[in-house]
Write a protein that binds this DNA or RNA. Structure first.
Lengths: 198, 198
DNA sequence: CAAAATCTACCAACCGTTTGGTAAAATTGA
DNA sequence: TCAATTTTACCAAACGGTTGGTAGATTTTG
């Protein structure tokens, strides 16, 4: 049996990088094949369609985030603040170097009307992110406020990344994550003083 | 038989509505022509190219915002807080009904790598928005803080709109604008107390 | 060898754009 | 005023090129 020269993980990584820079409609199957050193016809040995490839990329990326990033929110070896700090550091790396964090937003906005098949994975990504964050905020807020706060933080971070990309100013995200961390410390203080006073 | 003439404003409005729901790469010249009751070839009587049409749409939209929305920030008949309130109301209408506010973000993200010719108008839109807002915040903050605050508010609103669109939750924006308004009131209070105390 | 992987060649459909042509409307000139 | 002329608005068809996708021959590999 001939062993596959191109393993799935590499194929997905290469495809992600093309989709990232050209969007969904903007990338051709030819581009995707070339990114993995293949001619157009050959890539159909690995994939069923352009659409199914994108779906697989989105799923793999979401799984990666859930397992490697969002899971930090439940790391019992760290204090809640340290967990948020870890998340911030990872987020900053992801958005500025990997440029992968806004991928879900990009593809989401581009395909929400034309390709509803992508919607579920994209929504799941954000629901997981918000869910993990709100578990963290549960340490300093009641359930409803924790959810609202998590939604707000995700919206602010995403907004910052987008403004960063469009205006080319790298300080947006940095300031946002500093703000989020300080806010959390403030919330912790308020909670302690409440415990002492009430 | 009098021929109904297609005026430029209608053409731009029709085109905007197509670009809005299908993106730039996702809409064909056929779509654009059909939206104005023309066949594909006929639209070239009005436009030079698909790209130039999009550019005109973007320019018209930016001009509209500058003249009708952002200008509220300098309305001397209103208090600073009332101006922000006006802006919030308009923003809410724009984002939820006209669905036009995230257009600049959508097209910006979709074309930033492939169509640099759109970048300038899109950036100008956000620079104008941030500029007008920071003039407002100048009433309660020093210059540098006013700019940072304006950038933050725009990022948060944009982030909210995007999450709203992707997750289908209409409460995001409402909560964001309430937060922005309350924050402004808080800043006004702090400024007054500073004046009294120092 | 046979299976797996890749290439070449080729679809039909669509892309943005151009063309040749045609009526109707507006303008002109007497 | 009214016919001649020009301009406008539009269409059907076609352009060269690209799209996502397929079929079959060819190469690589265990």
């Amino acid at each position: 049996m001939a062993k596959p020269k191109l393993d799935r993980k590499t194929l997905l990584k290469n495809s992600l990088s093309v989709f990232k820079s050209r969007g969904y409609h903007g990338t051709s199957v030819n581009d995707l094949a070339a990114a993995s050193g293949l001619l157009k016809g050959s890539i159909y040995h690995y994939i069923e369609s352009k659409e199914s490839l994108m779906l697989e990329v989105l799923n793999a990326l979401r799984d990666h985030y859930v397992a490697k990033v969002f899971s930090k929110c439940h790391d019992e070896n760290l204090t809640p603040y340290e967990r948020l700090q870890e998340l911030s550091i990872r987020a900053e790396e992801i958005f500025t170097f990997e440029e992968t964090g806004d991928f879900f937003v990009n593809i989401g906005l581009e395909t929400i009307n034309s390709n509803p098949s992508f919607a579920k994975v994209i929504q799941d990504f954000f629901k997981d992110w918000i869910g993990s964050l709100s578990d963290l905020y549960r340490h300093v807020l009641d359930e409803q406020d924790a959810i609202v706060q998590a939604e707000r933080v995700v919206a602010e971070l995403e907004g910052s990344v987008i403004m960063m990309k469009i205006l080319g100013d790298v300080n947006y995200l940095k300031r946002s994550s500093v703000r989020v961390l300080n806010e959390f410390k403030e919330l912790e203080k308020n909670k302690i003083s409440k415990v002492y006073n009430g």
